[in-house]
Amino acid sequence: MSENIRVAIDGPSGAGKSTLARSVAARLNFLYVDTGAIYRTIGYAVWRKGIDPRDRSAVVAVLPDLEICLTYGTDGLQHMELNGMDVTAEIRLPEVSRYASLVSAYPEVRAYLLEMQRQLARENSVVMDGRDIGTVVLPDAEVKVFLTASAEERARRRMLELEERGTPEPYAAILRAIQERDWNDTHRDAAPLRQAEDAVLLDTTALDFVQSEDALLHIIRERTGL
């Protein structure tokens, strides 16, 4: 086992990967890396520039102009910077989700960000979540987990989250968006979402947050001896 421990968590949108990964990383004193936020940052840049995210050549052309950095503030949370500006809040805008999904399908975009992600894992013990962490980014990770839940449950959780934020959306619309995102993520040519052969499947459909966190910690400790 390498000096640093790498925990790779993959799974569909809305499965709770980020929330669980962030909490577990804090419990283990590991660095939490939300790779979805990195792709959202590119999606946000494309959206802000008025570029059609389906225009692959236009998206690729803008990459050299983007300086993307991950920072960790006094709150211990990951912050995203785009060309020197903190865009941590902006990348969570609902309209950015579709852009992130589309631009993340381009091989050039994924290659552009690959080394950044691997460098973080070389320098730190990490809990890293995304769509292709265990299959592409960290194929030799000590722990691989495929975290999922039914589309209906993920839509229900998202609906409650949006209501708490004061930006409610209809359940049916949220469910359609999640199903569309699932299809896009699993059918893209570059690093499609799939469970790595050596990943542990963790389905949280019937679990609350505490139960999900306990199950994830159990898997990590069982695999690493922590």
Rank of each mutant, 00 (worst) to 15 (best):
A8G: 02
D129K: 12
W183P: 02
A215H: 09
I5Y: 14
A15Y: 02
S18W: 11
D140P: 03
E108L: 01
S2I: 07
W183E: 12
T35D: 06
I51N: 00
T88V: 09
P94E: 00
R194G: 09
L175W: 01
A25K: 11
N83V: 05
L162E: 12
E152A: 03
L147Q: 01
N124M: 12
E95K: 15
A25F: 01
Q195C: 15
E180P: 00
R157W: 09
E115I: 06
A215L: 13
M80A: 15
L138T: 06
R54N: 14
H187C: 08
E169A: 15
Y99Q: 07
P12F: 00
P192Y: 00
V200R: 10
F30A: 04
T19D: 09
G76P: 10
V143L: 02
A111Y: 08
S97N: 15
D203I: 10
S150R: 05
F209I: 15
Y44T: 06
E81S: 09
P12E: 01
R181V: 02
M85A: 12
T71P: 05
I178S: 03
Y32N: 15
M85N: 10
I51V: 13
M80W: 14
T88M: 09
Y106P: 03
V33E: 01
D214F: 01
G130H: 04
Q117K: 02
K17T: 10
A89P: 00
Y72A: 11
T19C: 00
A141C: 01
T74R: 14
R154I: 04
L93C: 03
T35G: 00
T167D: 11
A89C: 13
V200Y: 10
D52M: 05
E153V: 01
D129A: 14
P170K: 12
S101L: 03
N184G: 07
A177P: 03
K17Y: 13
D55M: 10
Q119W: 10
S104W: 13
V200T: 11
L201T: 06
M116V: 02
L102P: 04
R131S: 03
T148K: 09
E142D: 13
R221T: 08
R181P: 13
A105E: 08
I178E: 05
A21G: 07
S13Q: 14
T71A: 14
A121L: 04
S104V: 11
L120A: 14
G50D: 08
V46T: 10
R223E: 07
M159L: 14
L63N: 04
Q119D: 12
R22Y: 12
D52V: 04
T224P: 06
I51F: 06
R110V: 02
T224N: 13
R221C: 13
L20W: 04
L77K: 15
L138F: 05
V210N: 06
D182Q: 02
Y112D: 09
P139Q: 01
L102D: 04
L93F: 05
A25M: 11
L66C: 01
G36I: 00
Q179L: 15
T148V: 07
